[in-house]
Nucleic acid binder design. Structure first.
Lengths: 137, 137
DNA sequence: GCTATTTTAGGTTGCCGACCTAAGATAATT
DNA sequence: AATTATCTTAGGTCGGCAACCTAAAATAGC
C-alpha cells in the first residue's frame, strides 16, 4: 500500500498554488513543473483533473494560468486524494469466505479513522512551516 | 491507494487459524482455501511468507498442516501487513521540489497515526463477533 | 483579423507489480 | 516403499501508473 506519485505531485503543486493565493498572479504549467520538479507533460493531466474536481480554476490564452478555487484553509488533503484517486482506502474484496465480512468490516473502521486524520490537514498547513526555499536573513 | 487482495487473503486465513487455536488440529491448505475462498495455489505462497515471517508454524508430511505460532491476542493487523507487504504506507518520493519535504513530512505523520490504529486490532478481534457461519440454535 | 501564448483533450507507449497457475522437490507418516 | 502433505520456484497474464506527444480550442495583444 503506497502513496502514488500522482497524489504527491498534486499536493506539491497545490502547495505552490497556495503560496500564490491572495495575489493576482496565475501560475503557468512550466513554472509549476520547474519549481516542484514535476514532469510538465504529466502535470498537464493532473491539473486537468484538479480543475474538473473543482479544486483549481484556470484561464486560457495569453496571461492564462492556474489558481486555487478556494482559500487554502478550505482545501483538505482528503479532497485532493479523492479527486485524484477516488477512494482513500479501497476495500477490494466483497467479504468472501467465512471471515470475509468481519475482515472487511475491520478495514472499513480503519479507513474511517484514516479519513478523519487526512481530512484534518489543509493546504495552508503545507506552506506554513519553514521548508526548502525559505531563507533566513 | 487500495488494500491488496493478498493482505485480505492473509487476514481471512489467519482468522480461520485463530478459530482453530487451542485445539490440536492442524489446518490443511485445501480446507483453508475452501472455507476462505482463496485460490489454493496462491495460498501456498501466502502461507509460506507468513511462515517465514514467524506468524504461523507448519508441519510436513502426513498429518501435516498449519497453525498459529502465537496466541491470537498477540498477533496484530500491522504485523500481518508488514510481513506481506513490508510498509503499511510507503512514501515514494524523497521530498523533491520546493514543497516536497513538507508534503512528505505530513504524510509520515499520517502513516504514524495509521499504524497506531492498525496495530490496535488483533487476530482475536477478527473472530469474536458473529459473522457468517455463525449459527443460532 | 492575425499571431503568439496558453490551456484542453485524446491517444499511445513502456514498464512494473499484482495475481494466479503449474509442476517438480522435499519431508514425514504409515 | 508408498502415500500424503508442504516447499520452492519458474513462469504467464493482466491492468494500471507514469510519461510523452500531438492536435485542437481559447484568449490577449497587435
Amino acid at each position: 500500500m503506497k502513496l502514488s506519485v500522482k497524489v504527491d505531485y498534486a499536493c506539491r503543486v497545490l502547495a505552490q498554488l497556495a503560496r500564490l493565493h491572495g495575489t493576482e498572479d496565475l501560475a503557468h504549467i512550466e513554472e509549476l513543473a520547474d519549481t516542484e520538479a514535476v514532469p510538465a507533460n504529466y502535470l498537464v493531466q493532473i491539473l486537468s483533473e484538479l480543475r474538473n474536481g473543482g479544486l483549481i480554476v484556470s484561464r486560457r490564452g495569453k496571461q492564462g494560468g492556474y489558481a486555487l478555487a478556494r482559500p487554502p484553509e478550505e482545501i483538505t488533503l482528503l479532497e485532493i486524494v479523492k479527486v485524484i484517486e477516488g477512494e482513500l482506502l479501497e476495500i477490494t474484496t466483497a467479504g468472501a469466505g467465512q471471515s470475509g465480512k468481519r475482515v472487511a468490516q475491520v478495514w472499513q473502521e480503519v479507513r474511517a479513522a484514516l479519513e478523519t486524520k487526512v481530512k484534518s490537514y489543509t493546504l495552508d498547513k503545507l506552506v506554513s512551516r519553514t521548508g526548502e526555499g525559505m531563507y533566513y536573513i
